[in-house]
Design a protein around this nucleic acid. Structure first.
Lengths: 249, 249
DNA sequence: ATAATAGTGTCTCTGAGACATTATACG
DNA sequence: CGTATAATGTCTCAGAGACACTATTAT
């Protein structure tokens, strides 16, 4: 833009890039955080696991591309994918992140309830849910993207109502608490969690229905739906864990 | 990636995009939030104001491109630009956001102290600081980017120590408070603000120096430097303002 | 009965908002 | 002196952590 580089705005002076989307799709299964991975069927990184993703089409915005890829990978129908929360995470632009060519990738994170069918895409190379703490090295910089996505999701639970996106349409407060505990990797006090959630208008609303069994034993839990609120005021902060109180006076 | 779209990973099947960076560079001048804008010297949007930015070079990551553009626009030397906080905001990918061709833009936000020299780039078309509340329509989707940047900056002040980036190397607590009040558009209670800042270890540290004049009258304020902490626990939340308490049972 | 899970009540402590008071400069 | 700004102190209330206790189911 400066006079020293007037070519900056010259429409013929640009370098062509490929633009892709990569998806970090999370769910909670069996009290563990899981992420959707696909096994690569081509070089580079043939046989390695990677985040699902693909190229952005010529007349498509990145979010539409992400929804399209998500529908392909999970087998969810377009309506379901159209309604769920997709969060743009960050864009990864290291010149060497793809050995073939210059590719910048816009990363998205998505949260799904535990699907009865673990995968939907008829991908020959394989796809499936992985416990995030058991994920090894991923293709490209997808390990970095996955780490950023986990951090972002954890932070978002603090000040948004996003946790309900991990739950089925109707859920118990225990299941909602399990989401927080799984994503944050901590245990929460049940009475306090309950008090906080119910004290936030619009976070959840009670469902007038027969209470749900919890697998057999114990008192059946009341059933709730996600409310209309999107943000938490005040936030539900993660317990500080081992914060070293950095004092050096 | 699914068998229905195997071309997705074909390195010759991608659509070429131009990739740019756009910068929302903020400062606080005269108790108002200001943003750096440049006047466009070419079509499209000739004569309109826009955020500074430019194309990403062939072997450059987006953040390097942003720093390069920032140095060109502000006239800061490379060392100063290399040290300051650049925050990747979002990537804008609407297919029609640039009428000339398909351009995706990675937006960054930066915070600067009030510079003695309002601009540095010898840009013929003009550049300067604008009061954000007096900014009219901008070129492309830069109005949207600017709005997103303001929101992000405001949110970041809540849970990070970023506000010191708006201040010169040495500053008073009154100046720091002014940053919060300017960005948030609210008035804060001075004793409470002071208590909160000083109670956060590593946010600021006192400078052993003669107290600074405040323009003449009144008691001189003690001088502080930015500390080593980067996050605020617990956060310094914006006053809820007019939160309508959305209750509809 | 006991075990297991859901839900309620209560005490306490921290932190923030409101605001009075004191301190130190200038004129 | 009066005025202006910086800094300290105090009161109160909301919200969160800890935890005791009650309720309702299955076995």
């Amino acid at each position: 833009m400066s006079t020293a580089a007037p070519a900056g705005y010259d429409p013929h002076a640009f370098t062509p890039f490929a633009v892709t989307v990569d998806l970090a799709v999370f769910t909670v299964r069996e009290e563990r955080l899981h992420v959707l991975l696909v096994e690569r069927g081509q070089e580079p990184f043939l046989g390695h696991w990677a985040l699902p993703g693909g190229f952005v089409a010529p007349r498509e915005c990145a979010e539409d591309a992400a929804r399209r890829e998500l529908a392909e990978e999970t087998g969810l129908d377009a309506d379901a994918v159209g309604g769920l929360h997709l969060e743009q995470l960050r864009t990864y632009t290291d010149p060497d992140r793809d050995p073939r060519m210059r590719v910048v990738s816009v990363a998205y994170a998505a949260l799904l309830p535990d699907l009865p069918e673990p995968r939907g895409g008829g991908d020959a190379a394989g796809a499936g849910w992985w416990d995030v703490s058991a994920v090894g090295d991923l293709a490209f910089d997808h390990g970095l993207i996955l780490a950023d996505a986990r951090e972002r999701i954890g932070a978002k639970l603090e000040y948004t109502c996003l946790a309900t996106a991990f739950c089925p349409p109707e859920f118990t407060l225990g299941e909602l608490q399990q989401v927080y505990e799984t994503v944050w990797g901590v245990e929460l006090d049940r009475p306090n969690f309950r008090r906080k959630v119910l004290a936030t208008p619009g976070f959840v609303e009670a469902v007038e229905a027969p209470p749900r069994r919890t697998g057999g034993r114990g008192k059946p839990a009341a059933v709730h739906r996600a409310g209309t609120a999107t943000t938490l005021h005040p936030p539900l902060l993660r317990p500080p864990l081992l914060r070293p109180e950095g004092k050096q006076p």
